[in-house]
């Protein structure tokens, strides 16, 4: 527990999640590692299929058959989540780590009123309260996400997309967890609403001192609100570092391409993108997974998998350009 002040809140070590299908094992996450300090906000970026959503599910221990956590550790405040029993994990969810879902449109139970959905998770974590306490708690939660308390008596279909997403935010912070994983929390909303919901999430994070892992595909958008960034590609971690450093000097060619491809004001309309397609996760290419699209690849990249190594203080990268001697 004393670790908490100095060491990281969350340490993910060499996490592997494979989906076992007839044709073999699909390595959705293959040896991902990163740390996160308490109260900090980290962005996890990658293209679709890079394994970032699988990471989120893995951290919640919600990988379903035929998928499996194949190896690695996820140490949250000294406890390895991978080793917990189902029931221990259930109790950990919401209390220690919570999730803000991706598809807010469909993430609420359509046949249950909001108030019941807000409290049933708490009740299942052993919280007991009187009728008045319950109502006060619901009102406070709804207010904290800038919703009218009247929402409590409504059904999901009576709410707008933005309101629904706020409700899911309220649910995820109901027990004031240490860590919240937000998987593209605003991707289904229109731009103005997106911004407002993000502001609410940021404000709550400050107030409660939450650590947040924000998952997304837009590096530019991400850069505005997170202090650390992790870049994933084809199930592997490419680079992890402070946002400022990463933008100032991206080390991995993939990160470089991602940043170059961002639309900026002075090169309006020139969106280069990254040529090539993401490799198959079933039969990944030998060597570095990115070599098929990498402009700087050389022989070693096609043969040997680069090690994910700390090349500067709190700066990790998996690329032969930086690790080969």
């Amino acid at each position: 527990m004393s670790e908490r002040q100095n060491g990281p809140l969350l340490q993910v070590r060499d996490l592997k999640v494979y989906y076992h299908v007839e044709a073999g094992a699909v390595k959705a996450v293959d040896g991902a590692s990163f740390n996160l300090r308490s109260g900090k906000k980290m962005g996890l970026v990658g293209e679709s299929g890079s394994g970032k959503s699988t990471m989120a599910l893995a951290m919640m221990r919600m990988i379903k058959e035929p998928g499996r956590i194949e190896g690695g550790q996820m140490i949250l405040d000294g406890i390895d989540l991978v080793s917990l029993s189902e029931e221990q994990m259930r109790q950990t969810r919401l209390r220690r780590l919570a999730m803000i879902p991706q598809g807010a449109m469909n993430s609420l139970n359509p046949v249950m009123r909001i108030d019941r959905q807000l409290v049933d998770g708490m009740i299942d974590h052993g919280i007991t309260f009187s009728r008045d306490e319950r109502d006060d708690r619901i009102e406070a939660l709804l207010r904290s996400v800038d919703l009218d308390p009247k929402v409590a008596k409504m059904y999901p279909h009576e709410l707008s997309g933005g309101m629904k997403q706020r409700v899911t935010v309220a649910m995820s912070i109901a027990l004031e967890p240490d860590l919240v994983i937000a998987d593209e929390p605003t991707s289904a909303l229109d731009v103005v609403i997106q911004r407002r919901v993000m502001e609410t999430i940021n404000r709550i994070q400050d107030e409660l001192g939450l650590a947040v892992i924000l998952i997304g595909h837009d590096m530019g958008l991400m850069a505005q609100s997170v202090s650390r960034l992790a870049v994933m590609y084809a199930g592997k971690m490419m680079e992890v570092g402070d946002t400022v450093d990463m933008f100032r000097e991206p080390l991995h060619p993939y990160t470089q391409l991602l940043i170059e491809s961002l639309p900026v004001l002075d090169n309006k309309g020139v969106f280069s993108g990254i040529p090539g397609i993401t490799p198959s996760l079933l039969n990944p290419p030998p060597g570095c997974v990115f070599h098929t699209r990498c402009p700087k690849a050389w022989d070693l990249c096609r043969e040997e998998i680069p090690e994910f190594a700390e090349v500067a203080p709190r700066r990790w990268v998996a690329c032969h350009l930086h690790t080969a001697s």
């Binding site: 969810r93 919401l94 919570a98 359509p110 649910m171």
Partner: peptide, 15 residues
């Protein structure tokens, strides 16, 4: 999605 989110909320299996 709502089953996944309910599971993420840590509700009991029976519920």
């Amino acid at each position: 999605d709502f089953i996944a989110f309910a599971e993420a909320k840590g509700v009991k299996r029976l519920r």
